[in-house]
Computed example of a mutant assay.
Amino acid sequence: MTAPRAPFTAPDAPIRRSGEPIDVVKLGLQDYEQMWHRQADIAAQRANDEIHDQLLMLEHPSIYTAGKRTQPEDRPTNGLPVIDVDRGGRITWHGPGQLVCYPIIKLNDPVDVVDYVRRVEEALIQVVRQLGVTTAGRIDGRSGVWVPASDGRADRKIAALGIRITRGVSMHGLALNCNNTLEYYDHIVPCGIDDAGVTTLAAELGRDVTVDECIEPISVALIDALEGRLTVADHTFGTAPDPCKGLGKRKV
């Protein structure tokens, strides 16, 4: 998704409202639905200036979650349950071996959602490249971080984004595939995209890459991006249709 205008905030300036340090909170394995409600409580506290900005680092037990643009044909064919949530995007899977980060960040006013997404993507791209997937980048028209087609494999997503902004505070966030299984993606149309694949750091690098290994570099890169120390660059290697364009929102 190419930004239609310059960002509201200078690229080398913070996008968040506070100058206080961001708290990095490691939560381990957390039930998705319980964490969803906990996120809402934390976001409300942040909107009321009761706490600092937070990066919640965790994993979920295996679960499908459906964003507001999810279509009936996206849903799983294996009979597993789906939680309909209030983030953007379509359906995805979360599970062990996947690092999930929920940035609870009070953003500058006026809120610039495009700039926020681009900064989060930039942080992810830098970490994925530093870990060894040097070709990782963006596909114009699609959010997240992608690895370009190679060795007979199509373009494939290695990190997904889905966000919600309420009262100027970000919720939901990112999921980086570290060493998780990919079998659950075979039973859905991941993110509503049927012309590309899904991958993990471990699959791309040919070695085990744990969630714990990725927490610190992701935390550092996200903080640098939100503060403007890591500026957004053009890492686009392709163009593809937006899987959410023209679709109505499902009510949650």
Rank of each mutant, 00 (worst) to 15 (best):
M1D: 15
A3I: 08
R5K: 10
A6I: 08
A6R: 09
P7Q: 05
P7F: 08
T9G: 08
P11A: 06
D12L: 00
R17V: 04
L29N: 04
L29E: 05
Q30W: 13
Q30E: 15
D31T: 03
Q34W: 11
A40I: 05
I42E: 11
N48A: 14
N48G: 11
N48L: 13
E50N: 08
H52Q: 15
Q54D: 06
L56Y: 04
E59R: 06
P61V: 01
A66C: 08
G67C: 08
R69C: 12
T70R: 14
T70L: 09
R75E: 12
T77Q: 10
G79Q: 11
G79W: 14
L80S: 13
I83L: 13
D86S: 12
R87F: 02
G89E: 09
P96W: 02
G97Q: 09
G97W: 10
L99I: 10
P103N: 05
I105Y: 09
I105F: 15
I105K: 11
K106I: 07
K106M: 06
L107K: 10
P110M: 07
V117N: 01
E121R: 01
I125T: 12
I125C: 00
G132H: 05
G132R: 11
R138A: 00
G141E: 11
V145R: 03
P148E: 00
G152D: 05
I158Q: 05
A160D: 05
G162V: 08
G162F: 10
I165T: 07
I165E: 02
G168D: 02
S170H: 05
H172Y: 13
A175P: 03
A175F: 03
N180C: 12
N180G: 08
N180A: 12
Y184G: 02
Y184S: 07
H187I: 08
I188L: 12
I188C: 00
V189F: 02
C191P: 06
C191S: 04
D194Q: 06
D194Y: 09
D195I: 13
A196M: 02
G197W: 01
G197E: 05
A203P: 01
E204L: 06
E204K: 14
L205C: 07
G206M: 09
V211N: 03
P217W: 13
V220Y: 00
I223V: 14
E227L: 09
G228L: 03
A233R: 14
D234I: 01
F237I: 09
P243Y: 12
G246A: 08
K249C: 14
R250D: 07
